[in-house]
Amino acid sequence: MSRLTRWLAPTTTARAHCDLPCGVYDPEQARIEAESCHKINEKYAANEDATFRTRAIAIKERQADLVKHHLDVLWHDYFKPEHLEKVPNLHELFWNANKQVSKVKASTEAADSKKLLEMIDEIDAAWKATGGLEKTRVAGRPA
């Protein structure tokens, strides 16, 4: 680089930036965290110890936040407008599932966390219907 070029070169860099996703998406991530919430609700109901219950609620809230995070990543990064042709109720599925996560955070009823699992299964079906299993996992799901 010549002295003139060095003198002219900008010292600040701006990004015209793009996402660099790893491209691996699977509703199973959200489901495992939701299963944690469900199991915690079951254990909560079976144990009346106040300390245990306080701890259970704190952990459930943390896991529920992870469910929301994984659902949001799927919704915003994996699913594309063209997927709406195959899954016309896609936004409704995610909207309802995220609302249900909020309900699970505030509730200790196993029925609520069970319902969340069913909603994630519907999202899983949408992911499979749009080729997610073949397109985003390295070698499909482990058998």
Partner: peptide
Amino acid sequence: GPWRLAIEQAS
């Protein structure tokens, strides 16, 4: 400033 910028990436 900045009065001058270099661009990186392609968006």
